[in-house]
Design a protein around this nucleic acid. Structure first.
Lengths: 216, 216
DNA sequence: CATTAAATTTAGGTTTGCCTAAATTTGTAA
DNA sequence: TTACAAATTTAGGCAAACCTAAATTTAATG
């Protein structure tokens, strides 16, 4: 059995892995806003269930089975987000929270039927690829805005869905998926960047800019 | 806070009340498939929270607040059922189980938007009325098939959504909502009935017939 | 009206998933 | 290479929601 709680552990392990960071008690505790002691306990249970490979004191990673559960959740999450935005007219910044709850209870049948209903979309409202029924997920080659060269034009390809505030701010200054921007300046001092959107200059703090990826 | 579990208690209390049966530890325990001891405990908690009025050893009933929570869940359940049947092409007998899970996690905003998306339907796929946003629910005047007179024609108005097997069987013999039937015979011996659907005679056991209501 | 059967509640116990505080392990730096 | 700080794990606890078994209350019957 994978409870709501265990599913959250697995999904977060996947996301940390995905970002290329080390998955250990500390990073997972931070991601889940749970004490390291609790994570340590649960990691043991997940390990016994064969969903992760754990090396005590050194970190852990998903097994094939664990990865499947994670990808299935991510598939559900992203398809739900598409439905919420396209059909129920949720805003960009509202979809994540609702999908986060629904993904844990909707059946595989539900999501397969929803996928068909939506016309087999390939990306969610934040630009992330949607795993197909066999859990294949398209690789992306997005570049972190912070790591691009100033003076060039880019197309917004993905914005992380974690922060409502950031999504709202970006909407306000005219940024959504596929928006063209020019990276006008990178300020080394504090890591912030100046971008031009629809001819207007905007300053993005480092924290903001870290959420943004461009096509490439 | 009302947990998934508490919500199930409240909803079931509503349904038992609705059927005109006495709501007590025993009837609720049966409805929830939980031991009477556990129900007794939880009834105390719900009572302390002001969601039910409890008279120890004698039964309990929803307060205004408890009723609101129940009706909101029923609203969610029934609107979800409409979506599942009309848009995702779920079968009659498949909608209940899925809605049962989703109703506990979807937000009020979700359900209000879904209601609009569906065009403000008034009845769910089993013929039950859907409470509106203010939780007003239309009264119905359905008659239990068992309590009607033989030899007359009736229109199927509601079938209880509790049993997949019954819904599948009814579908097989050609019964859905608004189907015209003739009650050909009532067999007092075992309470079963003979009905004519599309010219064909069918025997319905008492257990079956108890799930069926006709317009009136 | 006393007894007893049925229904209900209370008592004590389990699992899940979290917590804090204490102990342990690891790895780095003197 | 030892010592210490940081990370991790273990120990002991708590709340929710369930359980069984025992005690209590209610109500029905002789």
């Amino acid at each position: 059995m994978t409870s709501r709680s265990k599913e959250d552990y697995l999904k977060n392990i996947y996301h940390i892995q995905e970002e290329g960071r080390k998955v250990n008690t500390g990073s997972l505790a931070t991601a889940l806003s749970i004490s390291p002691a609790s994570v340590s306990e649960m990691v043991n249970k997940l390990s016994k269930q064969g969903l992760i490979d754990n090396t005590p004191y050194h970190g852990f990673e998903l097994t094939g089975d664990g990865r499947k559960i994670s990808l299935n959740l991510i598939r559900k999450h992203r398809l739900l987000e598409v439905f919420l935005e396209e059909h129920l007219h949720y805003e960009w910044d509202e979809v994540h929270e609702e999908a986060e709850k629904l993904e844990h209870v909707c059946s595989d049948m539900f999501i397969n039927k929803l996928e068909e209903y939506l016309g087999f979309p390939k990306f969610d409202p934040h630009g992330d690829p949607i795993p197909d029924k066999e859990l294949n997920i398209a690789p992306t080659h997005y570049k972190l805005l912070l790591k691009t060269e100033p003076g060039k034009e880019y197309i917004i390809a993905k914005v992380k869905d974690s922060s409502i505030e950031i999504l709202q701010y970006l909407t306000k200054i005219g940024i959504k998926l596929n928006t063209k921007i020019i990276l006008s300046e990178k300020i080394d001092f504090d890591g912030s960047v100046v971008i031009i959107v629809e001819g207007r200059k905007n300053l993005l703090s480092r924290v903001m800019a870290e959420q943004i990826f461009v096509a490439g």
